[in-house]
Structures are given as structure tokens and as C-alpha cells.
Amino acid sequence: AVSDRLIGRKSVVMEAISPQNSGLVKVDGETWRATSGTVLDVGEEVSVKAIEGVKLVVEKLE
């Protein structure tokens, strides 16, 4: 599936994300709604860990 190619990809937070609120990330020039178990600020680099419905699950790059 097209979405499977996103797992493991680097992306950049475009709208802040917290455990309570989804935000936005940009992956390969496309904007996606995303969630995370931690707070992520605009501009942080993250990695796509999973896809749940139409949202990406991301975490901060170490």
C-alpha cells in the first residue's frame, strides 16, 4: 500500500503534537495528521512509526 512506504520515513512537525491532540507533519512534501505519545514542537524531526486509519503515529528522532 502507498501508506506502507511512509513507515520509517523522516518527517518534520508542522503543527505541534501532544498525547491529547493530534498535529500535522510533512512527509515527502505531503502533509499528514499525526499523533504521538509525547509532546512534539513545530520544526522537530520525527520518524513515522505506524499508521492508524488516516493518521500517522510518529516519535522524535534520537
Rank of each mutant, 00 (worst) to 15 (best):
G53M: 03
V42S: 04
E15V: 11
V48Y: 00
S3W: 08
Q20W: 11
S47M: 15
G43V: 02
V12F: 06
E44Q: 10
E44P: 01
P19I: 05
E45H: 11
K55N: 14
V27E: 00
I17S: 01
E52W: 10
G8Y: 00
G37W: 11
V46Y: 00
R5L: 09
V48L: 01
I51V: 13
V13E: 03
I17K: 01
R5Y: 09
E15M: 09
A16L: 09
S47E: 14
P19Y: 03
V48A: 00
K26G: 07
A1T: 13
G53R: 03
D28T: 01
E45Q: 10
V12I: 14
E59I: 09
Q20T: 13
E62I: 12
W32P: 08
G29W: 04
K49C: 12
K26H: 09
L40F: 09
I7C: 08
P19A: 07
V2I: 13
V57F: 08
E30R: 07
S22V: 13
V48C: 01
V58D: 02
K10L: 14
E44G: 02
V25M: 01
V39W: 15
T35N: 06
V58F: 00
L40N: 02
S36N: 00
V25L: 02
K26R: 12
V46I: 05
L40C: 15
V39H: 14
E44H: 05
L40W: 05
V13M: 01
E52Q: 12
V48T: 03
G37L: 13
E30H: 07
E62G: 12
V13P: 00
L56F: 00
E62C: 12
P19K: 06
A16I: 09
V2K: 11
L24Q: 07
V25R: 00
S3H: 14
L24E: 05
S36P: 00
V42H: 03
T35W: 02
I7T: 05
A16C: 11
T38V: 11
T31Q: 10
V13D: 02
I51W: 06
G8T: 03
S47W: 15
V48E: 01
E30Q: 10
E52N: 11
P19N: 05
E30Y: 08
K55A: 13
A50C: 09
V48D: 01
V48F: 00
V48W: 00
E44K: 04
L61V: 11
L61C: 10
V12W: 04
W32D: 09
A1H: 12
S36H: 01
V39L: 10
T31H: 11
K60I: 06
I17P: 02
V57S: 04
V2P: 15
L61A: 09
G8L: 00
S47L: 15
A1M: 13
S22D: 15
V42E: 06
G53Q: 03
K60F: 05
K60M: 06
A16G: 08
D28Q: 05
S11L: 10
I17W: 00
V2F: 11
E30F: 08
S11I: 08
S3F: 11
V13A: 02
V27S: 04
A50E: 06
G37S: 15
E52C: 14
G53I: 03
S36V: 02
D4Y: 03
E30N: 07
N21M: 13
D4A: 13
A50W: 08
